[in-house]
């Protein structure tokens, strides 16, 4: 009885580890392979790789089209992050201060855009703002409209994360600050902000990464001049599959990784100061 249970348990565990191993390879493969291919010296995508070089990196950064797309991606992502963090944090603070039916409905309202597919939002914004002019400029095709579009996903993410964080703050600590003579703004700056710094940085990173990688909305909303790197990659995918795309993929991943590392080191420095 006991032995057979032991054997089943071991078999199950082995099967589980096998699944884990296969999934690990599956998950790492496309990422790793794009990385390797970016250092290929060949013209075409085939295995085994014959020669190694950095020529495709030189090619990528020498191409105005790709560099422009990279700049567009970064500018749009930064703008969307600022919008998302500002709007999402403010909402989260307001909502977390109260608890009633209305705030439940408000939270749900904030979440709605997350349930709408990017292609639908992209199409809708293109249709609705296609001929809207703001300050004498066409809104459509600008980086600003893409920032707004990406904030529709960034803002709810920030809101969710920050609302949980704000609710987890000790109410008595905030009251103690008021009690000792600090007004609401001083209390927010002196007591709340330092406590939620990590959460704000993480949610900023979140909305930044979402915007850097997003391409359904960007596809519908950008022109040749404002297209982002994922859009440019998508458009060149069928026409010219070259190692240059591998470099583009590596550049996108590097942006994400660098922002992750910046976040982690920023947090670590803070920890050291405190410890």
């Amino acid at each position: 009885m006991r032995r057979s249970g032991d054997i089943t348990a071991r078999l199950l565990w082995a099967a589980g580890l096998l699944v884990l191993g296969v999934v690990s390879v599956y998950v790492a493969l496309p990422v790793a392979i794009a990385f390797v291919m970016s250092f290929s010296g060949g013209q075409i995508l085939r295995f085994p790789i014959q020669s190694w070089s950095l020529r495709w990196y030189a090619d990528f950064f020498g191409s105005p089209q790709y560099v422009d797309a990279l700049v567009n991606t970064l500018v749009i992502a930064l703008g969307a992050t600022v919008l998302s963090v500002a709007a999402g944090t403010a909402s989260a603070w307001a909502i977390s201060r109260r608890k009633n039916l209305a705030t439940g409905a408000l939270t749900l309202l904030h979440m709605l855009p997350l349930f709408v597919p990017g292609v639908v939002l992209g199409l809708g914004i293109a249709i609705t703002f296609g001929n809207v002019r703001l300050f004498g400029m066409d809104l459509y095709g600008t980086r600003f409209i893409v920032m707004l579009a990406h904030s529709l996903w960034g803002m709810p993410l920030v809101m969710m994360l920050m609302e949980t964080t704000f609710r987890s703050l000790d109410r008595q600590v905030l009251e103690a600050s008021r009690d000792l003579g600090a007004g609401p703004f001083t209390t927010f700056r002196e007591i709340v902000l330092p406590e939620v710094r990590t959460a704000i940085l993480s949610s900023a990173l979140f909305s930044f990464v979402v915007s850097v990688n997003e391409f359904y909305m960007a596809l519908f909303l950008t022109t040749r001049d404002t297209q982002t790197l994922p859009v440019l990659m998508w458009l060149s995918l069928r026409s010219a599959g070259s190692p240059r795309l591998a470099v583009a993929a590596v550049v996108l991943m590097t942006i994400v990784l660098v922002s992750l590392v910046l976040l982690a080191s920023g947090l670590r420095r803070k920890e050291r100061v405190r410890g």
């Binding site: 493969l29 496309p30 990422v31 995918l237 991943m253 994400v256 992750l260």
Partner: peptide, 18 residues
Amino acid sequence: LCPLLASEISIIFGWWLV
């Protein structure tokens, strides 16, 4: 986190190589 942090287009390209 890999599939979550990588762009869908980068992943498509990765499969194109595999």
